[in-house]
Design a protein around this nucleic acid. Structure first.
Lengths: 202, 202
DNA sequence: CGACTACTAGAATAATTATTCTAGAGATCT
DNA sequence: AGATCTCTAGAATAATTATTCTAGTAGTCG
């Protein structure tokens, strides 16, 4: 066995750094190997293709992120799930840029590699399940309307407030959490008053 | 003068359609001319480069979008400015995808063309001015904290709620406006109560 | 030691795109 | 009609990338 100079994590680390700096499009086999001063042969010895490296990187990152949300829901605390986004981003600035500034499909150039399809599908499903669970925790019911509101509170708003700061490569300031809290409480209160006065909410 | 078969708007229209369907990356000189069945010579007769076509397309689209926001602020109605996003998107689904699903820099491949730099800078400035104006209208004051909240209400939240629907190529349903309204009222009320109880706001 | 394995090394190849270039065609003007 | 100007046409060129291929090298196992 020849001396291993570059392992999988080296390549992934370089890819993450480049993606965080210049976007996923700038992550080319050339830019990775240049940064590492590794030959392209070593790259292809580890990964069957560029798309597989980037697909795995995205998938691992999103799963790490989602874990925190899931944990908060397991603890029955949906507000904590909403606040998890800024908290996680503060710990993982590069990963935050990767995940929240770009689209899933910005990472692979063609179709998603067959080898990753199932894992991506599982991730999507887990996410959908999380929203339903959150809807039940927050509103006591998981109809389409409640799920839509849960998506708003747990995903759309937190990502939206955090984005501007990620673009500037700065950790999200406290006002971000405050805005998430205000919005959370407002949507919950609104739902309660509305279901109390006029019949159902769908 | 030879018969004009393809004018600027033909090329821009094709570019818009392709960008809305498959993203700005799929807008290549080849995909445009193929769609139009035009020769590449005609393309380069109209536009100095691919980046200039796409830069102009983005710029024209964002200015059209911003006009509605500005009009609402001129009318002294910041809530209408917040609701302008879903309203405009319903009228311009393709343009909405172009503008709200991608980044400004996804459109040009290298640096922004020199010829467009000034117009982009003016656009950015206009946008910043709009937020300051909105902050004054909503909160009566335009300090950093008030401006941040105005950005949240006028830009971040509306874009965030609308995005999911744009991804599915469907017009944003009424719940979107409702969520924007709820959030708007909540942030305004919060600011009022807070500045009434403990001193200033930041 | 000698075969084998797991890599390093990087040149060669292929595919995709932007851009340039050379020709030719139809209007318009005189 | 003939000159000229604006375009159409599309082939040729250049640059960028992903991927493949051929060699060589350093450990490990027998």
């Amino acid at each position: 066995m020849a001396r291993t100079k570059f392992d999988e994590t080296d390549f992934k680390g370089a890819a993450l750094a480049i993606a965080a700096e210049r976007g996923p499009l700038a992550v080319t086999v050339g830019s990775i190997t240049e940064r590492l001063k590794a030959p392209t042969g070593s790259f292809y010895h580890r990964f069957a293709s560029r798309d597989i490296l980037l697909g795995e990187l995205w998938l691992e990152t999103v799963l790490d992120f989602q874990q925190g949300t899931t944990a908060a829901l397991d603890a029955g605390d949906p507000l904590a799930a909403a606040l998890h986004t800024p908290a996680w981003v503060r710990k993982h600035l590069d990963e935050g840029r990767l995940l929240l500034l770009y689209h899933r499909d910005d990472f692979v150039q063609r179709e998603w590699p067959q080898t990753l399809r199932d894992r991506v599908a599982a991730q999507t499903e887990q996410m959908a399940g999380g929203f339903a669970r959150a809807a039940r925790l927050i509103f006591g019911h998981a109809g389409p309307d409640e799920i839509r509101r849960a998506q708003f509170l747990l995903a759309e708003v937190p990502v939206a407030v955090v984005r501007r700061h990620l673009e500037r490569r700065e950790p999200p300031p406290p006002i971000v959490d405050e805005l998430i809290r205000i919005t959370y409480r407002a949507v919950v209160d609104d739902y309660r008053t509305r279901t109390r006065s006029d019949g159902a909410g769908g």
